[in-house]
């Protein structure tokens, strides 16, 4: 298919074909990471700016490295120690950086819709790297990529997303993407951390019985409790949470033999997921991180206008 989008703002608005296109493109980029020279010239001369208004380790580094592997120049910006602390607005900051001649913004922001706002006010590509509790499309894509890679397919699988659904952009992006590719999605967690209308909003199932969910799932994606978003107000305490809603070895005895355990990180070890499981055989957590790089290369490559052509064809042209 011909890729036509300039921005990646959310998975809700993508078609199944577009999601598959990103996953397939990512698969071809994954091969690049295995080479001794891990670089292709696809975005040579282009500039990608990381605009991070919220803390990030994985995502910001993953995007920066993805851009570098595509030979783009990169700049990074974080809200502390910048003009934001002097009260500059998002739009002003972005327009000033844009005036330096950049091609894409990768933005993380605590406000839902901040990437959408940016896309309305700049000429650059805008890639959403997490907007509040709304979406985190590249995390959703890398999770789906990992499921497809490990389990060989997505359609027909049951994927359970466990924990702090209320505050999770990862849950929302996963739900949209997985549903479009034909998976069954169950969101499970304490009633107060699963917003009342979310089943209807996302076309998913909701459960508060983790044992029952564990038995059915082919993939279990554990979410971090977002204490920084005051998630602690919504349940009585972490000990109770771990006992009733956390994933532990005892509970995993009920799981299907091939079920995988995922986590977008960072992990609250011993709360939503025990260290034994996080580091155990079923865990694909580090593969998720590796795959994230390939997915982000694919997203930058497609959205920055190179589109359509395969990686190989592109390299030929560049050569």
């Amino acid at each position: 298919m011909a890729w036509t989008r300039k921005h990646l703002l959310d998975l809700e608005s993508l078609s199944k074909a577009e999601i598959v296109e990103i996953l397939d493109t990512a698969a071809s980029f994954k091969e690049v990471s295995g080479r001794s020279v891990k670089k292709v010239p696809a975005l040579r001369g282009r500039v990608v700016v990381n605009l991070f208004y919220e803390a990030s380790t994985r995502t910001s580094n993953s995007f920066a490295l993805a851009a570098k592997r595509l030979s783009a120049d990169t700049m990074s910006f974080s809200s502390s120690g910048s003009s934001v602390s002097k009260g500059e607005t998002l739009i002003d900051t972005a327009k000033n950086i844009e005036a330096m001649g950049v091609d894409a913004f990768v933005i993380r922001h605590s406000a839902p819709g901040a990437p959408h706002l940016l896309a309305r006010h700049t000429q650059c590509s805008v890639i959403n790297a997490g907007d509040g509790c709304h979406e985190h499309p590249t995390q959703g894509l890398l999770d789906i990529f990992t499921i497809r890679e490990k389990l060989g397919k997505v359609a027909g699988l049951t994927v359970a997303i466990l924990g702090d659904i209320r505050h999770s952009r990862v849950a929302r992006s996963n739900a949209h993407g997985l549903r479009k590719l034909g998976a069954r999605v169950i969101l499970a967690g304490p009633p107060t951390l699963v917003p009342p209308a979310i089943a209807a909003a996302l076309g998913v199932e909701v459960s508060h019985d983790i044992d029952a969910v564990v038995e059915q799932a082919d993939a279990l994606n554990c979410l971090r409790i977002q204490f920084e978003r005051k998630a602690g107000r919504f349940f009585p305490g972490v000990r109770e949470y771990a006992a009733i809603y956390g994933l532990n070895e005892d509970r995993m005895k009920r799981a299907k033999p091939g079920a995988i355990i995922m986590h977008p990180g960072p992990i609250n070890r011993g709360i939503e997921l025990t260290p034994e499981l996080a580091d155990g055989d079923r865990s694909v957590i580090l593969q998720q991180v590796s795959n994230g790089l390939a997915v982000r290369m694919a997203v930058l490559y497609l959205c920055m206008g190179v589109g359509a052509q395969s990686v190989a064809a592109r390299e030929e042209v560049e050569a």
Binding site: E12, P112, G113, D131, G132, C133, H134, E135, H167, S168, R169, R172, P195, P196, A197, I198, A200, A201, L202
Partner: peptide, 13 residues
């Protein structure tokens, strides 16, 4: 408003 739309947008309703 708290409802389907706020749930989808991840906005406190």
């Amino acid at each position: 408003h708290e409802g389907k739309v706020s749930a989808a947008l991840g906005i406190n309703g």
